[in-house]
């Protein structure tokens, strides 16, 4: 584990040069989305009644929280991972020091999780300011967002390590990350989706994260349901880590 901590420290140190720019993409963007779609569009959705049971901004807020975590996790675990293998070759430098492939992989994942935690933590504060948190359990939406983040960063790091070209990464955003953001219960209940797509949505980690976070912020959580969601996310993350270690080994150790 100490090896992984060394790798983790490397990424934290390099983040110190980048944090200013990342504020925009990781915190400001989701707040802008919330203002435009939650508050602005909410005026049309609510029109007097509340067709979703609660005000629209309250409805989308937890969805945006988990989706924001997914976006950061997805971005950080794609181009930077490919870069560390192919362009900057940072991973190779780490392996030249006495670190194992697993340390390199885990260290980077810890960094992704930290990025997600920092952004979603601040974002949760913003959600409170928008008056969208209706239960003390809302604070648990934070670790849920981080866990959902890892459920993305782990398999995506495996994918990025495997991918032969960087156009593969753009494709995963266009055909996975963006559709998930739009269709996994973030903006409207998945029950609105046609049958086949709905089943697909239930299988995505984003839906599990969003659904659990929403029940937590609304205070309607039941522990049985929470357990199912968490178990699903943990399983997804664990499978991702296993795949990532295999993909890293294949690319880095020859």
């Amino acid at each position: 584990m100490t090896g992984a901590m060394l790798a983790y420290e490397h990424w934290l140190a390099s983040y110190r040069r980048l944090w200013r720019a990342s504020i925009v993409s990781s915190i400001l963007n989701p707040i802008l989305y919330l203002a435009a779609l939650g508050v602005g569009l909410g005026k049309l959705v609510n029109h007097g009644a509340h067709p979703l049971g609660v005000s629209y901004v309250t409805y989308v807020a937890p969805g945006m929280l988990v989706a924001a975590g997914m976006n950061i996790a997805a971005f950080e675990s794609t181009w930077p991972v490919m870069g560390a293998i192919k362009w900057t070759r940072v991973y190779h430098a780490m392996l030249a020091a006495p670190l194992r492939v697993r340390d390199v992989m885990i260290g980077h994942q810890l960094y992704f999780a930290s990025r997600v935690a920092a952004s979603t933590g601040l974002y949760l504060v913003a959600l409170a300011a928008f008056g969208t948190l209706h239960s003390p359990y809302a604070v648990l939406a934070w670790p849920v967002a981080v866990l959902a983040g890892v459920a993305f960063s782990a398999p995506l790091a495996a994918y990025a390590a495997w991918a032969p070209k960087d156009s593969y990464l753009a494709a995963v955003f266009r055909f996975a990350v963006v559709p998930l953001f739009l269709f996994s219960g973030t903006f409207f209940p998945v029950t609105r989706l046609p049958e086949g797509l709905r089943q697909l949505a239930y299988a995505t980690p984003l839906w599990h994260g969003v659904d659990l976070a929403r029940h937590l912020t609304l205070g309607t959580v039941t522990w049985g349901m929470a357990l199912v969601h968490v178990a699903y996310l943990v399983a997804f993350a664990a499978a991702g880590l296993w795949l990532a270690e295999r993909a890293y080994t294949r690319k880095l150790v020859r």
Partner: peptide, 16 residues
């Protein structure tokens, strides 16, 4: 098109 389907048709139901 994804945006159109998500917001236009999915959310649109609640917008009217």
């Amino acid at each position: 098109l994804f945006y159109l389907f998500s917001l236009g048709f999915g959310l649109g139901h609640f917008v009217g």
